[in-house]
Amino acid sequence: MREIVLSDADIQSIINGRDVIKQSGETKIKIRQSYLKDAAMPVIKDRYNIADSVTEEHLKNFRASIQNTFRPGA
């Protein structure tokens, strides 16, 4: 079995939509993220998760604005 080792930088590149090219012998291998989203959440609760920081920030700001709307005296 062949093994392709990815560094943290390689994984971050893939998560951010960039391709990673590795060489195995004479063969170049292009590794990329799938174009399709998973149909279901992962079954296993992992220690580390992938999150879109821009979307998370928008959600945080939206929730804060909603809380301020319903606060007495706002």
Rank of each mutant, 00 (worst) to 15 (best):
N61I: 00
E56N: 06
I29D: 07
I44P: 01
I11N: 00
V5S: 08
N49S: 09
I14F: 10
I11M: 02
D52S: 13
G25A: 04
A40E: 11
K30N: 11
P72K: 15
A39R: 13
G73T: 04
A40Y: 13
R18Q: 15
R63N: 15
E26V: 04
I66H: 02
N68V: 09
S24N: 01
G25D: 05
G73P: 02
D19W: 03
S34G: 06
A39I: 10
R47E: 14
E3P: 01
I14R: 01
N49Y: 05
V54T: 11
Y48F: 13
E3V: 13
A51E: 13
P42Q: 09
G25L: 06
I21H: 02
G17D: 03
M41L: 12
H58M: 13
A40P: 00
S65I: 01
F70M: 03
S65W: 03
K30S: 09
T69V: 06
Y48D: 00
I44S: 08
F70E: 12
V5M: 03
E26N: 08
E57S: 11
K22S: 01
G25Q: 11
T55L: 09
H58Q: 14
L59Q: 15
K22C: 04
D46E: 06
T27G: 00
I11G: 00
K30I: 06
I29G: 04
I66S: 01
A39E: 14
S65C: 02
N49L: 08
D8S: 03
P42W: 09
E57V: 02
A51F: 13
R18P: 00
P72L: 03
K45H: 03
I66T: 08
N61F: 03
L59T: 10
D10Y: 01
K22L: 02
Y35Q: 11
E57D: 05
I4W: 09
E3D: 05
E56I: 05
S24E: 06
L6E: 10
I66Y: 13
S24P: 00
S34W: 08
V54A: 09
A74G: 07
S34M: 04
T69P: 01
E3I: 11
I15M: 12
I21M: 04
A9H: 07
Q67I: 02
I11K: 00
L59I: 15
T69F: 15
S24I: 14
L36Y: 05
N61K: 14
K22A: 02
I44M: 08
R47Q: 12
T55H: 05
K45M: 06
P42L: 07
D46S: 12
D8L: 09
F70R: 12
P72Y: 13
S7G: 07
K37I: 07
R32E: 08
P42F: 03
V43Q: 12
D19K: 14
K28A: 09
Q12E: 14
N16A: 05
L6P: 03
I11D: 00
G17V: 05
Y35L: 10
R18G: 08
E56D: 14
E57R: 14
R47A: 06
S13C: 07
D10V: 01
P42I: 10
Q23V: 10
H58I: 15
Q67R: 15
I44L: 07
R63F: 12
T27L: 04
R32S: 12
T27P: 00
Q23M: 07
A9K: 15
I15A: 14
